[in-house]
């Protein structure tokens, strides 16, 4: 499994933003870090890969997942999961139902709940199964949100500054947790951040310049 991008450039209609060309390849279990100041187009690149680019933007080049071109694939069929800053657990479903929401349709009936509870057991959070997201702590929410993504069996994962809203000690723990899970599941990951501490050991880094018309590969 690998996520790769070749000769990818993104521009908006007004010509205010023009980033790229990007060329990178992320192997299974690897994390590529994308750094840059706000406004440098980090999120735009993630949106292009996930298929959420607003209509006013356009891009050239290729996005490949397992050698398959994703350019024309609608977002929900790309099998690319996004971990956002906020946990975005659904407030109307309890914790195990939130997890069950992501389990593929091939798992049916009671097996769905069992699968969700198994994940909670792994996290030692089984007692939270019937709680709602407003009732549990930020750290717990973050972990459950990550596990919900993985339950949907993604083929690649995008991390959109997922640690920036957590406080310091939580941040370290959750970061370790996310990196472990990515290793465990052997999927490629692209991470956007502006904190140097987030860069995994021996991980490769791309830095985006805030100036338009430029995007350098370091």
């Amino acid at each position: 499994m690998a996520l790769s991008v070749s000769q990818l450039t993104i521009q908006d209609q007004q010509g205010l933003l023009h980033i790229g060309p990007f060329n990178f390849n992320i192997e299974a279990g690897q994390i590529l870090t994308l750094m840059g100041a706000s406004g440098s187009g980090k999120s735009t690149l993630l949106n292009a890969i996930a298929g959420h680019l607003p209509p006013s933007f356009s891009y050239d080049g290729q996005i490949l997942l397992q050698q398959q071109c994703l350019n024309t694939v609608p977002p929900h069929l790309r099998r690319i999961a996004i971990l956002f800053q906020d946990d975005l657990l659904f407030p109307h479903l309890n914790i195990w139902q939130n997890l069950a929401f992501a389990i593929p349709r091939s798992v049916t009936g009671k097996a769905r709940k069992e699968r969700a509870l198994k994940v909670l057991k792994q996290l030692n959070l089984i007692e939270l199964q019937n709680s709602y997201s407003a009732q549990i702590s930020g750290g717990q929410r973050a972990r459950i949100s990550m596990m919900r993504l993985l339950l949907s069996q993604p083929k690649a994962i995008l991390l959109d500054e997922p640690f920036s809203k957590l406080d310091k000690n939580l941040r370290y723990d959750f970061r370790q947790f996310v990196f472990e899970q990515i290793q465990l599941q052997q999927i490629p990951a692209l991470m956007v951040t502006h904190d140097d501490a987030d860069i995994p050991v021996n991980g490769s880094v791309i830095t985006l310049n805030p100036k338009p018309q430029q995007g350098n590969l370091c």
């Binding site: 996930a50 298929g51 959420h52 609608p74 977002p75 929900h76 069929l77 099998r79 690319i80 999961a81 996004i82 956002f84 975005l88 929401f101 992501a102 593929p104 919900r148 993504l149 949907s152 993604p154």
Partner: peptide, 10 residues
Amino acid sequence: QVAASLGYNP
């Protein structure tokens, strides 16, 4: 966006 990343169409 969250739902699409979990495989749900609009």
